[in-house]
Amino acid sequence: MSRFVDLAKNPLLISSVAILALLILGELVSPGFARGDQIVRLLTVSAILGIAAAGQNLVILGGREGIDLSIGAVISLGAVIAGNVMNGSDAAIPLAFAAACFAGFMIGTVNGLGVTYLRIPPLVMTLGMMGVIQGGLVVLSRGVPSGNAAPALMAFVNRSAFLGIPGILFVWAAIVVLMALMLKRTRFGWSIYAIGSNENAAILTGLPARRIRVLLYGLAGLFGGFTGVCVIGYTGNSFISVGDQYVLPSVIAVVIGGTSLAGGAGSYTGTALGAIALILLQSVLTTLNLEFWGRQVIFGGTLLLLMLLYGRQARLRV
């Protein structure tokens, strides 16, 4: 019985069942919803959210109320930088990619330094950083959209690379595998869980907890910049608030995927499934032809329902 309960509370299983149920529901409501090319389309959107959520996942795993609310602004920054560096030229894609990721990494590192050495709570530090980046973007762009995606980048995100599947999905699959290997098989991965679940114990075993945490925030920024490049590849051009819509969904994908907001427990595989489930839910709600407010209410209600299954905190009475 308890094994059954454990199984029913496994986030990977719940997300997978939710994905299946949503696909069936979508197909029932609007035939063709679960067609191959539609699924590829939905997975592409999920991949962009999933890559952003990878960074979010790392800082949340690292504990100490870790969270990165600046990720949306970093995505916007990455998109604007990449767009301006490329400006429609295929040859400049590698440089654009490197510039966006580097800018993200530097901003993330500043977040990490503020969180660890100045001991500013992550929620506030990254919130403040969000304001600074958004302000910086307004100054840089003067509110005018600028920069264009190179054709090859747009093809990479939107067109089939192999068997009808666009290149970005292969990249995302690689990220899923690499993240799983890193978290479960490397010393660095283990130390993330160690500082996330019991920082004092981790320090006593000799782990440089602060440096690890700074690196985690840096990586979160890097993934943010990466996401920005994907976003401009998806939409073709960038505007300065393009990343805002990813902030809270990236946190929710992590939570749906079974990573505890308290840190120290969870996996990126779960987060990836969580991102797919979230995008599917939004898509099904759009297909249902509901009014906007109805979609909102159902979306919020579903999140609460998912949390009822496994987003709950430990009981105080033992």
Partner: peptide, 23 residues
């Protein structure tokens, strides 16, 4: 009562509340 995490919960209820406001 249900031991939910406050950040995600109040984000979810904020979506519901703003949905109701639009209704």
């Amino acid at each position: 009562g249900l031991r939910f995490q406050p950040i995600v919960t109040t984000f979810a209820t904020s979506i519901v509340f703003s949905g109701l406001a639009l209704w």
